[in-house]
């Protein structure tokens, strides 16, 4: 009896001190073309949209298929890593007289997909909105090993000229860089962006490199230049194969 009274008293106490707010359900609405565009708000966007139109609506490429970015690797990440690799390789060969080994960027820096069909300057801004610039770093073999560990642990980052066999536990089994087995006794020239070069995304192996070359070109502009040139030659954007980062047992 005593116990029941105690229980009742506790319940009353709980009720009177209980929160004054109650969750009564949640919902979300997917924003799509079935929802009307508010004309008042749209008219406020219009002057800005019009100012951008001439520059951003220029078509600079044509993609035979849509390209997305994903882990461990996606066609869009591979395409961007390849474009940056080629740009940096040319710079290294012409200005320094020696080759580049590879390119590594971050999947988190690719912010949209590449649409199928005509590709505009504005769409490249959405894919690569940041003002980051292309750099080449010379890093030690030990730092290169850390980089490979990072890619394996992260479950992939976009690379060019690297082939890595990754185990399910986040370690790696085999690494090939510039068509040669990884050698921890040699230094490597790696192209990347200056956000990662200053420790962004905790890529600490890029801190204090042996050498650093600033190409003074934005990642986005390197992409736009490349696509525009191909388009002028009638070349379509093709999805690169995804066979660089592979999982093994």
């Amino acid at each position: 009896m005593k116990r029941i009274h105690f229980l009742y008293a506790s319940l009353m106490l709980l009720a009177s001190c209980g929160p004054a707010v109650r969750f009564q359900g949640g919902a979300y609405t997917r924003i799509d073309s079935l929802i009307a565009t508010d004309s008042v708000e749209n008219s406020k966007i219009l002057p800005y949209r019009n100012q951008l139109a001439a520059e951003m609506n220029e078509v600079i490429g044509f993609a035979d298929s849509g390209l997305i970015s994903r882990r461990p690797e996606g066609p869009l990440g591979n395409l961007i890593a390849d474009v940056l690799y080629q740009r940096a390789e040319l710079y290294m060969l012409e200005s320094m007289g020696f080759p580049l080994h590879a390119c590594v960027i971050n999947a988190g820096g690719i912010r949209a997909s590449l649409p199928k069909g005509p590709v505009t300057v504005g769409q490249i801004y959405s894919i690569a909105p940041f003002e980051n610039e292309l750099v080449v770093l010379r890093i030690s073999g030990a730092k290169m090993a850390e980089l490979l560990n990072y890619i394996a642990k992260k479950g992939g980052e976009p690379v060019s000229n690297i082939h890595l066999l990754i185990r399910k536990d986040g370690s790696w089994a085999e690494a090939t860089i510039a068509n040669k087995p990884f050698d921890s006794r040699q230094n490597y020239y790696i192209a990347t962006n200056d956000y990662l070069a200053q420790g962004g995304d905790k890529m600490s192996f890029f801190n204090q490199p042996l050498e650093r070359y600033d190409l003074r070109v934005k990642v986005r502009d390197a992409l736009i230049d490349h696509l525009r040139k191909d388009y002028a030659h009638g070349l379509h954007i093709q999805a690169p194969a995804t066979n660089r980062l592979e999982y093994v047992e």
């Binding site: 004054a20 707010v21 109650r22 969750f23 949640g26 919902a27 979300y28 609405t29 997917r30 924003i31």
Partner: peptide
């Protein structure tokens, strides 16, 4: 891409 909604009783 989405508008979230939460209903609370007060």
């Amino acid at each position: 891409l989405r508008l979230g909604r939460i209903n609370l009783g007060i």
